[in-house]
């Protein structure tokens, strides 16, 4: 089963995205911020795809991606960033950190599943 790791400090966001993914047949893991996600990854979660928010307490999304890419098991994992219109400027920085692509909030279900299909072969 394809596993997706969702990282967002907003529970509302997690609650809105998780059912979409579950319904589409993905296994979903969640984390509340970058550090939380790194902890969970250290405990053996093996996501096929990571979707992370940008602005989060403790560790922001870009730093998380930069850190996660250091893990040999996550070198090639597609990582999508959830952005708002206003932090579009951060995209260049995010790409350098290793982000595959981005999703602009609010994310419609079709759009979310479409992008996952686009970046994840065999999804």
């Amino acid at each position: 089963m394809t596993t997706v790791l969702l990282i967002d400090d907003s529970t509302t966001m997690l609650m809105s995205l998780k059912p979409i993914l579950t319904k589409a047949g993905y296994a979903v893991e969640t984390a509340n911020h970058g550090k939380d996600a790194l902890d969970k990854l250290g405990k053996g979660i093996k996501p096929d795809l990571i979707i992370t928010d940008v602005n989060m307490p403790q560790m922001d999304g870009i730093t998380f991606v930069r850190e996660a890419r250091k893990d040999p098991g996550l070198r090639f994992t597609p990582m999508l960033m959830l952005t708002t219109e206003s932090d579009q400027a951060k995209r260049a920085e995010a790409k350098t950190a290793g982000v595959t692509g981005w999703l602009v909030k609010p994310v419609a279900p079709d759009q979310l599943l479409g992008v996952i299909k686009q970046v994840l072969p065999g999804a």
Binding site: R69, R75, F76, T77, P78, M79, K95, G98, V99, T100, Q118, V119, P121
Partner: peptide, 14 residues
């Protein structure tokens, strides 16, 4: 590009 999770051939397929 592989290190950003990109797979160019997968993109072209679409």
């Amino acid at each position: 590009c592989f290190f950003r999770g990109e797979d160019p051939l997968h993109l072209i397929r679409q």
